[in-house]
Write a protein that binds this DNA or RNA. Structure first.
Lengths: 205, 205
DNA sequence: GTGACTGATGTCAGTTACGGACATCACTAT
DNA sequence: ATAGTGATGTCCGTAACTGACATCAGTCAC
Protein backbone atom coordinates (compact mmCIF):
# COMPACT_ATOMS: atom_id res chain seq x y z
CA UNK A 1 0.00 0.00 0.00
CA UNK A 2 1.04 3.48 -0.68
CA UNK A 3 -0.55 4.86 2.48
CA UNK A 4 -1.00 3.60 5.99
CA UNK A 5 -4.51 2.18 6.28
CA UNK A 6 -7.14 3.47 8.67
CA UNK A 7 -6.51 7.14 8.11
CA UNK A 8 -9.88 8.03 9.58
CA UNK A 9 -9.37 6.08 12.75
CA UNK A 10 -5.89 7.51 13.22
CA UNK A 11 -7.26 11.01 12.79
CA UNK A 12 -10.02 10.35 15.32
CA UNK A 13 -7.61 8.93 17.86
CA UNK A 14 -5.13 11.76 17.49
CA UNK A 15 -7.90 14.34 17.64
CA UNK A 16 -9.32 12.98 20.88
CA UNK A 17 -5.90 12.95 22.50
CA UNK A 18 -5.03 16.45 21.37
CA UNK A 19 -8.42 17.83 22.39
CA UNK A 20 -8.16 16.20 25.80
CA UNK A 21 -4.68 17.58 26.30
CA UNK A 22 -5.13 21.14 25.07
CA UNK A 23 -8.81 21.77 24.44
CA UNK A 24 -10.87 21.71 21.26
CA UNK A 25 -10.31 25.28 20.15
CA UNK A 26 -6.61 25.26 20.80
CA UNK A 27 -6.02 22.46 18.29
CA UNK A 28 -6.19 23.10 14.56
CA UNK A 29 -7.34 20.61 11.99
CA UNK A 30 -3.97 20.92 10.24
CA UNK A 31 -2.26 19.95 13.47
CA UNK A 32 -4.34 16.83 13.90
CA UNK A 33 -3.65 15.80 10.33
CA UNK A 34 0.07 16.40 10.55
CA UNK A 35 0.28 14.44 13.79
CA UNK A 36 -0.65 11.34 11.82
CA UNK A 37 1.26 12.22 8.66
CA UNK A 38 -1.62 13.66 6.63
CA UNK A 39 -2.62 17.08 5.39
CA UNK A 40 -5.40 19.40 6.45
CA UNK A 41 -7.18 18.83 3.14
CA UNK A 42 -7.33 15.12 3.77
CA UNK A 43 -8.76 15.74 7.23
CA UNK A 44 -11.67 17.59 5.68
CA UNK A 45 -12.15 14.86 3.12
CA UNK A 46 -12.81 12.43 5.94
CA UNK A 47 -14.85 14.74 8.17
CA UNK A 48 -17.31 17.33 7.04
CA UNK A 49 -16.12 19.70 9.74
CA UNK A 50 -13.70 19.81 12.64
CA UNK A 51 -16.23 18.75 15.26
CA UNK A 52 -17.32 15.75 13.29
CA UNK A 53 -14.03 13.99 13.96
CA UNK A 54 -15.41 13.22 17.43
CA UNK A 55 -18.80 12.00 16.20
CA UNK A 56 -18.24 10.21 12.94
CA UNK A 57 -18.88 6.49 12.84
CA UNK A 58 -21.84 6.13 15.11
CA UNK A 59 -23.64 4.02 12.57
CA UNK A 60 -23.35 0.95 14.77
CA UNK A 61 -24.63 2.89 17.73
CA UNK A 62 -27.61 4.07 15.73
CA UNK A 63 -28.15 0.55 14.50
CA UNK A 64 -28.32 -0.63 18.10
CA UNK A 65 -31.19 1.77 18.61
CA UNK A 66 -33.00 0.51 15.54
CA UNK A 67 -32.37 -3.11 16.49
CA UNK A 68 -33.88 -2.43 19.88
CA UNK A 69 -37.03 -1.11 18.27
CA UNK A 70 -37.21 -4.06 15.89
CA UNK A 71 -36.71 -6.51 18.72
CA UNK A 72 -39.77 -5.30 20.59
CA UNK A 73 -42.74 -7.67 20.47
CA UNK A 74 -45.44 -6.82 17.91
CA UNK A 75 -48.08 -5.62 20.31
CA UNK A 76 -45.78 -3.55 22.48
CA UNK A 77 -46.89 -0.09 23.53
CA UNK A 78 -44.66 2.86 22.55
CA UNK A 79 -42.90 2.97 25.88
CA UNK A 80 -42.41 -0.75 25.92
CA UNK A 81 -40.61 -0.29 22.63
CA UNK A 82 -38.59 2.49 24.22
CA UNK A 83 -37.61 0.16 27.03
CA UNK A 84 -36.32 -2.33 24.44
CA UNK A 85 -34.46 0.41 22.63
CA UNK A 86 -32.82 1.53 25.84
CA UNK A 87 -31.70 -1.98 26.67
CA UNK A 88 -30.27 -2.47 23.21
CA UNK A 89 -28.56 0.91 23.21
CA UNK A 90 -27.14 0.36 26.66
CA UNK A 91 -25.60 -2.93 25.56
CA UNK A 92 -23.51 -0.85 23.21
CA UNK A 93 -21.68 0.55 26.23
CA UNK A 94 -20.29 -2.29 28.30
CA UNK A 95 -18.47 -1.34 31.45
CA UNK A 96 -15.10 -1.66 29.71
CA UNK A 97 -15.92 1.44 27.72
CA UNK A 98 -16.72 3.51 30.74
CA UNK A 99 -13.28 5.06 31.10
CA UNK A 100 -13.01 5.95 27.44
CA UNK A 101 -16.54 7.34 27.38
CA UNK A 102 -15.72 9.46 30.40
CA UNK A 103 -12.70 10.98 28.70
CA UNK A 104 -14.53 11.62 25.49
CA UNK A 105 -17.49 13.16 27.28
CA UNK A 106 -15.30 15.43 29.34
CA UNK A 107 -13.90 16.85 26.12
CA UNK A 108 -17.38 17.39 24.74
CA UNK A 109 -18.71 18.89 27.95
CA UNK A 110 -16.02 21.51 27.97
CA UNK A 111 -16.95 22.98 24.61
CA UNK A 112 -20.30 24.49 23.67
CA UNK A 113 -19.82 23.82 19.97
CA UNK A 114 -19.24 20.15 20.67
CA UNK A 115 -22.27 20.00 22.93
CA UNK A 116 -24.33 21.46 20.12
CA UNK A 117 -23.17 18.72 17.81
CA UNK A 118 -23.91 16.09 20.43
CA UNK A 119 -27.44 17.37 20.90
CA UNK A 120 -27.89 17.33 17.16
CA UNK A 121 -26.82 13.70 16.95
CA UNK A 122 -29.13 12.84 19.83
CA UNK A 123 -31.98 14.54 18.02
CA UNK A 124 -31.16 12.51 14.94
CA UNK A 125 -31.45 9.37 17.02
CA UNK A 126 -34.83 10.48 18.27
CA UNK A 127 -35.99 11.08 14.73
CA UNK A 128 -34.92 7.59 13.74
CA UNK A 129 -36.70 6.01 16.67
CA UNK A 130 -39.81 8.02 15.96
CA UNK A 131 -39.78 6.70 12.41
CA UNK A 132 -39.45 3.15 13.71
CA UNK A 133 -42.42 3.73 16.00
CA UNK A 134 -44.45 5.15 13.16
CA UNK A 135 -43.61 2.10 11.07
CA UNK A 136 -45.14 0.08 13.89
CA UNK A 137 -48.36 2.01 13.59
CA UNK A 138 -47.84 4.55 16.35
CA UNK A 139 -49.32 7.90 15.42
CA UNK A 140 -48.20 11.45 16.02
CA UNK A 141 -47.44 13.09 18.28
CA UNK A 142 -47.11 9.88 20.30
CA UNK A 143 -44.22 8.56 18.23
CA UNK A 144 -42.10 11.69 18.47
CA UNK A 145 -43.03 12.15 22.08
CA UNK A 146 -42.00 8.64 23.06
CA UNK A 147 -38.85 8.76 20.94
CA UNK A 148 -37.60 12.07 22.30
CA UNK A 149 -38.47 11.15 25.85
CA UNK A 150 -36.57 7.92 25.31
CA UNK A 151 -33.42 9.68 24.21
CA UNK A 152 -33.80 12.03 27.16
CA UNK A 153 -33.85 9.04 29.46
CA UNK A 154 -30.85 7.60 27.71
CA UNK A 155 -28.96 10.86 28.01
CA UNK A 156 -29.61 11.17 31.71
CA UNK A 157 -28.71 7.54 32.29
CA UNK A 158 -25.53 7.93 30.28
CA UNK A 159 -24.50 11.00 32.26
CA UNK A 160 -24.99 9.07 35.46
CA UNK A 161 -23.11 6.04 34.12
CA UNK A 162 -20.14 8.30 33.37
CA UNK A 163 -20.17 9.88 36.80
CA UNK A 164 -17.17 9.23 39.02
CA UNK A 165 -17.81 6.45 41.48
CA UNK A 166 -20.75 5.00 39.59
CA UNK A 167 -20.52 1.22 39.29
CA UNK A 168 -23.94 0.12 38.01
CA UNK A 169 -24.32 -0.90 34.38
CA UNK A 170 -25.78 1.57 31.92
CA UNK A 171 -28.65 -0.80 31.29
CA UNK A 172 -29.51 -0.87 34.97
CA UNK A 173 -29.31 2.87 35.32
CA UNK A 174 -31.48 3.39 32.27
CA UNK A 175 -34.12 1.10 33.75
CA UNK A 176 -34.08 3.10 36.95
CA UNK A 177 -34.40 6.42 35.16
CA UNK A 178 -37.25 5.13 33.06
CA UNK A 179 -39.00 3.90 36.18
CA UNK A 180 -38.48 7.29 37.76
CA UNK A 181 -40.19 8.86 34.79
CA UNK A 182 -43.18 6.60 35.27
CA UNK A 183 -43.33 7.44 38.94
CA UNK A 184 -43.23 11.14 38.15
CA UNK A 185 -46.04 11.00 35.64
CA UNK A 186 -48.08 8.58 37.71
CA UNK A 187 -47.94 10.94 40.68
CA UNK A 188 -50.27 13.32 38.91
CA UNK A 189 -53.49 11.44 39.31
CA UNK A 190 -55.11 8.38 37.83
CA UNK A 191 -57.38 9.94 35.22
CA UNK A 192 -55.61 10.81 32.00
CA UNK A 193 -56.83 14.37 32.13
CA UNK A 194 -56.80 14.95 35.87
CA UNK A 195 -53.18 16.05 36.04
CA UNK A 196 -53.04 18.77 33.48
CA UNK A 197 -56.73 19.48 33.56
CA UNK A 198 -56.56 20.72 37.10
CA UNK A 199 -55.73 24.20 35.94
CA UNK A 200 -56.03 23.85 32.20
CA UNK A 201 -59.34 25.65 32.13
CA UNK A 202 -58.27 28.63 34.16
CA UNK A 203 -55.97 30.53 31.82
CA UNK A 204 -55.69 29.13 28.32
CA UNK A 205 -53.70 32.11 27.16
CA UNK B 1 -27.17 60.78 18.06
CA UNK B 2 -24.32 59.93 15.83
CA UNK B 3 -25.74 56.53 14.88
CA UNK B 4 -29.18 55.18 14.21
CA UNK B 5 -30.41 53.51 17.38
CA UNK B 6 -31.31 49.84 17.62
CA UNK B 7 -28.43 48.51 15.61
CA UNK B 8 -28.94 45.04 16.99
CA UNK B 9 -32.61 44.90 16.09
CA UNK B 10 -31.92 46.22 12.61
CA UNK B 11 -29.27 43.57 12.11
CA UNK B 12 -31.62 40.85 13.30
CA UNK B 13 -34.41 41.99 11.05
CA UNK B 14 -32.19 42.28 8.00
CA UNK B 15 -30.61 38.92 8.71
CA UNK B 16 -33.94 37.13 8.93
CA UNK B 17 -35.10 38.64 5.67
CA UNK B 18 -31.90 37.85 3.82
CA UNK B 19 -31.77 34.32 5.19
CA UNK B 20 -35.38 33.72 4.22
CA UNK B 21 -34.76 35.05 0.74
CA UNK B 22 -31.46 33.38 -0.10
CA UNK B 23 -30.62 30.87 2.60
CA UNK B 24 -28.37 31.08 5.64
CA UNK B 25 -25.11 30.02 4.00
CA UNK B 26 -25.56 32.20 0.95
CA UNK B 27 -25.58 35.36 3.05
CA UNK B 28 -22.38 36.71 4.57
CA UNK B 29 -22.18 38.57 7.83
CA UNK B 30 -20.65 41.53 6.01
CA UNK B 31 -23.65 41.64 3.71
CA UNK B 32 -26.11 41.77 6.58
CA UNK B 33 -24.15 44.54 8.22
CA UNK B 34 -23.84 46.61 5.06
CA UNK B 35 -27.55 46.25 4.37
CA UNK B 36 -28.21 48.30 7.50
CA UNK B 37 -25.25 50.63 7.12
CA UNK B 38 -22.84 48.92 9.48
CA UNK B 39 -19.64 46.96 9.12
CA UNK B 40 -18.92 43.28 9.56
CA UNK B 41 -16.87 44.00 12.65
CA UNK B 42 -19.82 45.66 14.30
CA UNK B 43 -21.99 42.68 13.45
CA UNK B 44 -19.67 40.44 15.45
CA UNK B 45 -19.61 42.88 18.31
CA UNK B 46 -23.35 42.41 18.68
CA UNK B 47 -23.48 38.67 18.04
CA UNK B 48 -20.94 36.12 19.13
CA UNK B 49 -21.34 34.30 15.85
CA UNK B 50 -23.34 34.45 12.66
CA UNK B 51 -26.03 32.04 13.84
CA UNK B 52 -26.62 33.94 17.03
CA UNK B 53 -28.24 36.80 15.12
CA UNK B 54 -31.33 34.60 14.94
CA UNK B 55 -31.32 33.59 18.60
CA UNK B 56 -30.12 36.58 20.57
CA UNK B 57 -32.54 38.24 22.92
CA UNK B 58 -34.52 35.35 24.25
CA UNK B 59 -34.08 36.54 27.78
CA UNK B 60 -37.77 37.38 28.06
CA UNK B 61 -38.66 33.99 26.70
CA UNK B 62 -36.45 32.31 29.25
CA UNK B 63 -37.92 34.50 31.93
CA UNK B 64 -41.38 33.28 30.97
CA UNK B 65 -40.20 29.76 31.70
CA UNK B 66 -38.81 30.76 35.07
CA UNK B 67 -41.91 32.72 35.93
CA UNK B 68 -43.99 29.66 35.15
CA UNK B 69 -41.97 27.61 37.58
CA UNK B 70 -42.20 30.27 40.25
CA UNK B 71 -45.93 30.59 39.77
CA UNK B 72 -46.56 26.94 40.60
CA UNK B 73 -48.10 26.34 44.02
CA UNK B 74 -45.69 25.31 46.79
CA UNK B 75 -46.72 21.68 47.03
CA UNK B 76 -46.88 21.02 43.32
CA UNK B 77 -45.33 17.84 41.96
CA UNK B 78 -42.59 18.17 39.32
CA UNK B 79 -44.94 17.67 36.42
CA UNK B 80 -47.48 20.04 37.86
CA UNK B 81 -44.70 22.61 37.82
CA UNK B 82 -43.97 21.65 34.24
CA UNK B 83 -47.61 22.22 33.35
CA UNK B 84 -47.35 25.72 34.81
CA UNK B 85 -44.12 26.35 32.93
CA UNK B 86 -45.74 25.26 29.69
CA UNK B 87 -48.68 27.54 30.19
CA UNK B 88 -46.43 30.48 30.96
CA UNK B 89 -44.13 29.76 28.04
CA UNK B 90 -47.04 29.33 25.67
CA UNK B 91 -48.41 32.72 26.64
CA UNK B 92 -45.23 34.13 25.16
CA UNK B 93 -46.49 33.09 21.73
CA UNK B 94 -49.91 34.59 21.14
CA UNK B 95 -51.56 33.75 17.86
CA UNK B 96 -50.43 37.05 16.34
CA UNK B 97 -46.89 35.75 16.35
CA UNK B 98 -47.75 32.59 14.53
CA UNK B 99 -46.91 33.87 11.05
CA UNK B 100 -43.60 35.35 12.10
CA UNK B 101 -42.69 32.23 14.06
CA UNK B 102 -43.47 30.14 11.02
CA UNK B 103 -41.14 32.14 8.81
CA UNK B 104 -38.37 32.14 11.34
CA UNK B 105 -38.70 28.43 11.95
CA UNK B 106 -38.66 27.62 8.26
CA UNK B 107 -35.30 29.35 8.02
CA UNK B 108 -33.97 27.40 10.97
CA UNK B 109 -35.35 24.10 9.74
CA UNK B 110 -33.56 24.45 6.45
CA UNK B 111 -30.11 24.66 7.96
CA UNK B 112 -28.45 22.02 10.14
CA UNK B 113 -26.17 24.51 11.82
CA UNK B 114 -29.15 26.59 12.88
CA UNK B 115 -30.97 23.53 14.15
CA UNK B 116 -27.95 22.72 16.26
CA UNK B 117 -28.07 26.13 17.82
CA UNK B 118 -31.78 25.82 18.45
CA UNK B 119 -31.33 22.51 20.22
CA UNK B 120 -28.60 24.07 22.30
CA UNK B 121 -30.88 26.89 23.37
CA UNK B 122 -33.61 24.41 24.19
CA UNK B 123 -31.17 22.43 26.29
CA UNK B 124 -30.26 25.62 28.12
CA UNK B 125 -33.91 26.14 28.91
CA UNK B 126 -34.13 22.64 30.29
CA UNK B 127 -31.13 23.26 32.49
CA UNK B 128 -32.73 26.40 33.86
CA UNK B 129 -36.00 24.65 34.60
CA UNK B 130 -34.16 21.79 36.25
CA UNK B 131 -32.42 24.27 38.52
CA UNK B 132 -35.77 25.83 39.40
CA UNK B 133 -37.13 22.41 40.27
CA UNK B 134 -34.12 21.62 42.40
CA UNK B 135 -34.61 24.90 44.22
CA UNK B 136 -38.08 23.61 45.04
CA UNK B 137 -36.63 20.53 46.62
CA UNK B 138 -36.93 18.13 43.71
CA UNK B 139 -34.01 15.74 43.60
CA UNK B 140 -32.06 14.22 40.75
CA UNK B 141 -32.62 12.71 38.34
CA UNK B 142 -36.27 13.72 38.74
CA UNK B 143 -35.56 17.43 38.22
CA UNK B 144 -33.60 16.99 35.01
CA UNK B 145 -35.98 14.33 33.78
CA UNK B 146 -39.04 16.51 34.29
CA UNK B 147 -37.33 19.60 32.87
CA UNK B 148 -36.09 17.93 29.70
CA UNK B 149 -39.35 16.13 29.16
CA UNK B 150 -41.10 19.44 29.59
CA UNK B 151 -39.03 21.12 26.90
CA UNK B 152 -39.66 18.13 24.66
CA UNK B 153 -43.37 18.63 25.09
CA UNK B 154 -43.00 22.31 24.39
CA UNK B 155 -40.98 21.62 21.25
CA UNK B 156 -43.52 19.19 19.89
CA UNK B 157 -46.38 21.52 20.71
CA UNK B 158 -44.59 24.44 19.09
CA UNK B 159 -43.95 22.46 15.92
CA UNK B 160 -47.64 21.65 15.76
CA UNK B 161 -48.64 25.23 16.46
CA UNK B 162 -46.53 26.34 13.51
CA UNK B 163 -48.00 23.78 11.15
CA UNK B 164 -50.05 25.07 8.24
CA UNK B 165 -53.75 24.97 8.96
CA UNK B 166 -53.37 24.71 12.71
CA UNK B 167 -55.68 27.12 14.53
CA UNK B 168 -55.54 26.07 18.18
CA UNK B 169 -53.54 28.14 20.64
CA UNK B 170 -50.07 27.00 21.64
CA UNK B 171 -51.26 26.71 25.20
CA UNK B 172 -54.04 24.36 24.19
CA UNK B 173 -51.77 22.24 22.05
CA UNK B 174 -49.20 21.99 24.82
CA UNK B 175 -51.87 20.76 27.21
CA UNK B 176 -52.90 18.11 24.74
CA UNK B 177 -49.35 16.92 24.16
CA UNK B 178 -48.71 16.76 27.88
CA UNK B 179 -51.86 14.75 28.34
CA UNK B 180 -50.75 12.44 25.56
CA UNK B 181 -47.51 11.86 27.42
CA UNK B 182 -49.44 10.87 30.52
CA UNK B 183 -51.58 8.50 28.51
CA UNK B 184 -48.50 6.89 27.00
CA UNK B 185 -46.79 6.32 30.31
CA UNK B 186 -49.97 5.24 32.04
CA UNK B 187 -50.57 2.59 29.38
CA UNK B 188 -47.68 0.56 30.71
CA UNK B 189 -49.28 -0.85 33.79
CA UNK B 190 -50.20 0.39 37.20
CA UNK B 191 -47.21 -0.77 39.23
CA UNK B 192 -44.24 1.55 38.92
CA UNK B 193 -41.93 -1.31 38.06
CA UNK B 194 -44.17 -3.42 35.89
CA UNK B 195 -43.35 -1.72 32.63
CA UNK B 196 -39.59 -1.76 32.56
CA UNK B 197 -39.16 -4.62 34.95
CA UNK B 198 -40.77 -7.12 32.63
CA UNK B 199 -37.50 -7.80 30.91
CA UNK B 200 -35.05 -5.88 33.01
CA UNK B 201 -33.67 -9.05 34.58
CA UNK B 202 -33.08 -10.91 31.34
CA UNK B 203 -30.11 -9.16 29.78
CA UNK B 204 -28.52 -6.47 31.91
CA UNK B 205 -25.59 -6.23 29.53
C1' DG C 1 2.63 -6.79 -20.01
C1' DT C 2 0.72 -2.42 -21.19
C1' DG C 3 -2.55 0.90 -20.83
C1' DA C 4 -6.83 2.80 -18.98
C1' DC C 5 -9.07 3.45 -14.64
C1' DT C 6 -9.76 4.26 -9.72
C1' DG C 7 -9.17 6.03 -5.18
C1' DA C 8 -6.78 8.15 -1.61
C1' DT C 9 -3.83 11.65 -1.15
C1' DG C 10 -1.08 16.20 -1.92
C1' DT C 11 -0.82 21.09 -3.54
C1' DC C 12 -2.51 25.60 -4.24
C1' DA C 13 -5.50 29.29 -4.16
C1' DG C 14 -9.59 31.32 -2.59
C1' DT C 15 -13.61 32.72 0.56
C1' DT C 16 -15.55 33.50 4.94
C1' DA C 17 -16.08 33.43 9.94
C1' DC C 18 -14.27 35.35 13.36
C1' DG C 19 -10.93 38.16 16.97
C1' DG C 20 -7.28 41.58 18.57
C1' DA C 21 -5.58 46.24 18.52
C1' DC C 22 -6.19 50.80 17.74
C1' DA C 23 -8.47 55.09 15.95
C1' DT C 24 -12.58 58.07 15.74
C1' DC C 25 -15.98 61.01 17.34
C1' DA C 26 -20.59 62.44 19.23
C1' DC C 27 -22.10 62.80 23.74
C1' DT C 28 -21.66 63.51 28.87
C1' DA C 29 -20.08 64.47 33.43
C1' DT C 30 -17.17 67.41 35.95
C1' DA D 1 -12.74 73.20 28.48
C1' DT D 2 -11.25 68.71 29.60
C1' DA D 3 -11.45 64.06 30.35
C1' DG D 4 -13.97 60.03 29.82
C1' DT D 5 -17.25 56.70 27.66
C1' DG D 6 -19.44 53.90 24.22
C1' DA D 7 -20.60 52.52 19.79
C1' DT D 8 -18.51 52.34 15.72
C1' DG D 9 -14.84 52.01 11.85
C1' DT D 10 -10.32 50.32 10.02
C1' DC D 11 -6.72 47.11 9.57
C1' DC D 12 -4.80 42.74 9.89
C1' DG D 13 -4.31 38.16 11.20
C1' DT D 14 -5.77 33.15 11.90
C1' DA D 15 -8.24 29.13 11.03
C1' DA D 16 -12.17 26.68 9.07
C1' DC D 17 -13.48 25.09 5.14
C1' DT D 18 -13.84 24.45 -0.50
C1' DG D 19 -12.87 23.84 -5.46
C1' DA D 20 -9.65 22.55 -9.07
C1' DC D 21 -6.02 20.03 -10.42
C1' DA D 22 -1.89 16.90 -9.92
C1' DT D 23 0.08 12.45 -8.37
C1' DC D 24 0.74 7.80 -8.17
C1' DA D 25 0.14 2.81 -6.30
C1' DG D 26 -2.87 -0.83 -7.28
C1' DT D 27 -6.12 -3.16 -10.33
C1' DC D 28 -8.46 -4.71 -14.18
C1' DA D 29 -9.17 -5.32 -19.18
C1' DC D 30 -7.15 -6.78 -23.22
Amino acid sequence: MRWEPGARQRLQGAALELFAARGFEEVTAAEIAQSVGLTERTFFRHFSDKREVLFYGQDQFLQAFIDGADAAPPGASPFEVIACVLRSAASFFPDERRAQSRMRQSVIDQNPALRERELHKLAGLATTIAAALRARGVGEPAATLAAQTGTTVFGIAFAQWIREGETRSLSGIASDVLRELFDLTAALGLGSSAGSGTRADSAPN
